[in-house]
Each structure stands twice: as C-alpha cells, then as structure tokens.
C-alpha cells in the first residue's frame, strides 16, 4: 500500500543547510542549527528588553520574568564566585540563557536543538575553560599552578596528586560539554522513539482500515506510547532547565576556583 514509514530517531539531529554561504573555502552555511540559534537570541533579547522597557516600580509579568532571570543569575554568581564575579555577569547570563533557550526551544516539534550537538557544547565549554584559565593566570601569574598541588599535602605525594589534578582540570570542558550534549540527545531520541512507536502502531495495526474496525485498534494502540510521551515531555522540560543550570553553576564554580585558588 503506502510506503512503510521507517523509524529513525536520529534524523532530528541532521543539519540541513538553508542558505549556502562560502567564506573563502570555509563553509559558513546558514543551517537549521544556525536558524534556531538566531531564534534563541531573538527570544532572549525580546524577553529581556520588552518587559523592562516600561520600568514599572511594580513589575508586570514580562518585567518580573526578566527581573527574575537577572536576579537568579546575579545571586548564583554572588553565592558561588563572590563580589569579584560581577565582571563576568553578562557572560554567565548570556551562557545560561543561550543554553536554556536552546534546550527549551528544541522541545518544540519540528524545531532543532543546537545544544544536542557536541561541537556546539564543546565550543561553549572550551570558551569557559579558556576564560577560567586566563582569569586564573591573569590574577595569580605563575602562582596559579599551585592550584594543581593543594597546600598541606605531603610533598612526597606530588607525583601522584599533580597528574590527577591536571587531568581533572583538563577534563572539565570534556565533562561539561558531554553532559549537556548527551542529556539533550538522549532525551530527544527517547521522545522520538516513543513518538515513532505511536505512528508505527497506528500504521501497522490500522492500515487500510477505513471501513473495518482496525483503524480504531491502531489508533488506541498508538495512543499508549503517546501517553508515556506526555510524561517524558514534562521530564524533558525539567532536564532542559536543569542542564542549563548545571552548565552555568559549574562555570561559576570553576571561576571561583580560578579567582580564589581553592
């Protein structure tokens, strides 16, 4: 009859170039990933500027939203980094909002989740890593390297402790990026798998069913995974917010380490 639909939950992660742009041999095509990055930036900008433009003493809903976002990150920075962290506030804020909206907007069907791509998350993590290392070096000079050998530890332990500390320091961007990418990818794949079950059951059981009752059977069978998907979607919203939070708070903790050296 009709072509049998195949289940490919990874298809959603395909990059599709929308506008081809070539910058001297470098492919800078505007893809669906770029589109959703632009949409995220636009949504964040709207959220942070439209509500606040009224400058009301008693904020309305939109203004309260932008103020809450501001204070949430400001408090996070103050509690985890201290007063020296205020310089990094715009960066931490942009980072959190970018990841948060990348995750959340990616939950909209037919959209694209750019945070489910390891290149993107690793680039973000690398920016954090370079920033933190740079801040540490700028603040403490060569003294920064004492970070890899905690004061008070016996010197004899140095051959063991120093490599461990260096490896743990270098693995930060890896863990940071893989955590976000894996969470996003796994969640979205699972949503797609269950959604695929729905369509497969509907097609295979209810196929050619216009007249007889099998269409109803297929419809009901297809409903079951969808009910599960409702719960999963709620769960994914939680994960989207949580992973943005985790990424940001770890950045704050790394910043604290770089500024205060433990």
């Amino acid at each position: 009859m009709t072509q049998e639909p195949k289940l490919d939950p990874l298809h959603q992660f395909d990059i599709i170039s929308l506008i081809h742009i070539d910058l001297g041999g470098i492919d800078a095509s505007f893809s669906n990933s770029a589109l959703w990055m632009v949409i995220s930036v636009a949504v964040i900008t709207l959220m942070m500027t439209v509500g606040i433009s009224k400058r009301a003493m008693v904020p309305g809903r939109l203004q309260a939203l932008s103020e809450m976002a501001y204070e949430f990150i400001a408090n996070m920075l103050r509690e985890n980094v201290g007063s020296q962290g205020s310089k990094f506030f715009p960066f931490i804020f942009s980072l959190f909002m970018f990841i948060l909206f990348g995750n959340l907007l990616g939950l909209i069907p037919f959209s694209f989740t750019f945070t489910s791509h390891i290149f993107v998350t690793f680039a973000l993590a690398l920016v954090v890593f370079v920033l933190v290392t740079f801040v540490g070096l700028a603040r403490h000079g060569l003294h920064f390297f004492t970070y890899f050998f905690p004061s008070g530890a016996p010197v004899a332990m140095a051959p063991l402790i120093v490599p461990i500390e260096v490896i743990s320091y270098l693995s930060r961007p890896v863990s940071l990026s893989i955590r976000l990418f894996a969470n996003m990818m796994a969640g979205h794949t699972m949503l797609k798998v269950f959604a695929g079950f729905s369509t497969l059951l509907l097609f295979n059981l209810g196929i050619g069913a216009e007249g007889d009752g099998t269409f109803l059977v297929g419809f009901l069978a297809g409903l079951a995974p969808m009910v599960l998907n409702v719960a999963l979607t709620g769960f994914e919203i939680l994960v989207a917010v949580l992973q943005a939070y985790v990424f940001t708070i770890l950045t704050c903790i790394y910043l604290h380490d770089a500024i205060h050296l433990h």
């Binding site: 470098i26 492919d27 095509s29 964040i44 606040i52 970018f98 993107v120």
Partner: peptide, 28 residues
C-alpha cells in the same frame, strides 16, 4: 558540519553577549 555550526555559534553568542551586556542587563 563543524565549521558552519561553530561560525554561527560564535556569531549568535557574541551578538547575545553584546546585546545583554550593552543594552538589556544594564537596564534591568
């Protein structure tokens, strides 16, 4: 798809950073 993602990530993130640090956050 490495180049285009990184390029657009840089463009959008820097744009976001500039908008946030110059206009949005000081206002809030």
């Amino acid at each position: 798809y490495f180049d285009e993602q990184i390029i657009w990530l840089a463009i959008t993130f820097i744009a976001l950073y500039v908008i946030m640090s110059r206009f949005a956050l000081p206002k809030v």
